[in-house]
Amino acid sequence: MQDEPLFSASAVSKSYGTHVGCRDVSFDLWPGEVLGIVGESGSGKSTLLNCISGQLDPSEGDVLYRTQDDGMKSTQAMSEPELRKLRRTDWAFVHQNPRDGLRLSVSAGGNVGERLMAVGARHYGDIRRSASEWLERVEISTARIDDRPSTFSGGMQQRLQIARNLVTHPRLIFMDEPTGGLDVSVQARLLDLLRSLVRELGLSAIIVTHDLAVVRLLADRLMVMKDGSVVEQGLTDQVLDDPQHAYTQLLVSSVLMP
């Protein structure tokens, strides 16, 4: 087992004036681990995700990431170029709405190739080859490589977003309700894809969702949030099958077959 986590949040809080977004959240994430963050709308899980993924500055606390070159490093201490580079190389972010994570006016191939070009790829043939490989990997026909994502179904757009993010082989992927807004059968396909990618690439992931069935299948560990605070955390199946906190018990019991 590796002794050092890949990612570590310590006492992260975010407040907007008197309103608390999230409060005093701490956790470690190890390589290859998938962490689920669940809670109802307004529980602070999205605020937390934005804080730890560098899209929002936490009011208090620190977020550390084990960089390839310098070891554990506070993301707040990173310069903006450094953080932006991290976000398009080592990190990935899958948005709930593919429109937020894709360029709808650019072809599927261009969407996948963008991160490669951003890190200096300048060979069209190579870029296109990588793009096709990734389209295949997320089960989008390579015949669609020159089509714009606006012509894709919701499930395809979501898979394209994943391909676009994974093409630079990130080590950590943040996902905000990745299966939200998709049909149940399409969700299943996406879950299967995410699970095998996580296993094959040794990815670590932080998934925010309100869907307990999703975390049951994807997450190793679970954090339950309510009113901005983590009320319970632990092994996913343990938290779901033997919830200790009143709120978690309520959450679990209000779901049909989690």
């Binding site: 632990g234 092994l235 199946d237 343990q238 099958d241 033997d242 200790q244």
Partner: peptide, 9 residues
Amino acid sequence: MRMIFGNYL
């Protein structure tokens, strides 16, 4: 059994 497996605390 579940406690041994870590499924129950």
